[in-house]
Amino acid sequence: MAPLNSWEVIEPANYFKSFVDQSSRPDGRDWNTARPISVRVGSIGTAEGSATVRLGNTTIVCGVKAELCRPSLEHPTRGFVVPNVELYPCCSSTFKAGPPGEKAISTSQFLQRLLQNNEIIDYEQLCVVPNKWAWCLYCDILCLDYDGNLIDSSLLSLVAALLHLSLPTVNIDPDTEALSLSQKHTQKLTIKERPMSTTFAVYNSDIQLLDPSAADEAECGGEVSVVLMESGDVCSIRKTGGRQVGVLLPSAVSSGKVQGFISTAQSRLSGIHETLKEALELHASANRKEP
C-alpha cells in the first residue's frame, strides 16, 4: 500500500474530504476547535514596540518603529500608523520573493482600515507639534512561519505590539525649535479598544472550519473574519470570495450563518483577551525586576 502521504499529494481534495466527512481535519482538530495561541510582548529590543504571536504553527512577529515626520496638511494634528504585512518565501513555499503579493496587500489594507475607521488609536496623541512634527508608527508584521489564519494572528500581534509600544519623550528647545529625544521610552500610547478577529474557512455552505491552517485554506473557498471589540460589538466582518472550480458557489454563506459566526467569535473573545493580558503582565513584571 502506498503511504498515506502520497494520497495527500496526488489527491489533496479527496484526502481532505475524507477527514471532513469524519467531522475532523488533517491536523486532528474538529471543525470548531482553534489552535493554541501564545503571545509574547517585547520580543525585539531595538523596536519601540514589539510582539510575537504563535497560533499553532503560524508565527508572526510585529515590530513598531517610530519615526518623527511632518503631519499631513489635511490633518495637521494627527500622526500616522502604517501596518505592513510581509510574507517572505521562508515562511511558506506559496509566497515568492519580490513585490508584496495579493495576500500581503489585502491583509495590510485590512489592518490599516480597521485602525483608521474604528477610533482604536488616538491619532492626536501621536502629534508632537501641530503642523510640524508627528510620530509615524511603522508596524512591520513579519510572518516567520505561515500555517494559515494570517488575519487573526497579524491583528493580534499588531494590537499586542501597539500595547507594548512606548515612545521616547520629545523635548523641544523653545529658542531654536530643535528636537531632542530622551533616552527613556516612557510615553505609552492609549489604545481605546482592542479588536480581536476570528476567522473561519468556508468549505461549503454547511461546513465552516474555525481557525484554518494552511492545508485547510488550500481546500476551502472563501474566508470569513469576524472582528469584535471587547464589548462584543461587531467591528468589522470581512468575507472574501473563494477560488474553487466546478462547484456552485461553495463559499457563499446565508445570512443566518453570519450570525453563527458572530456568536462563535463572541464565545472565543474572553480567552484571547486573557492570553493577551497575561503576556502584558508577564512583560511588565519582568521589567520591574530589572530596572
Binding site: N118, M229, T240, S255
Partner: peptide, 14 residues
C-alpha cells in the same frame, strides 16, 4: 441571496 463577500468599516451591534 447568499453573501459572497462583505467588507465593513465602523462598528455595529449584531
Amino acid at each position: 441571496a447568499n453573501v459572497v463577500a462583505c467588507y465593513q468599516q465602523g462598528r455595529l451591534s449584531v
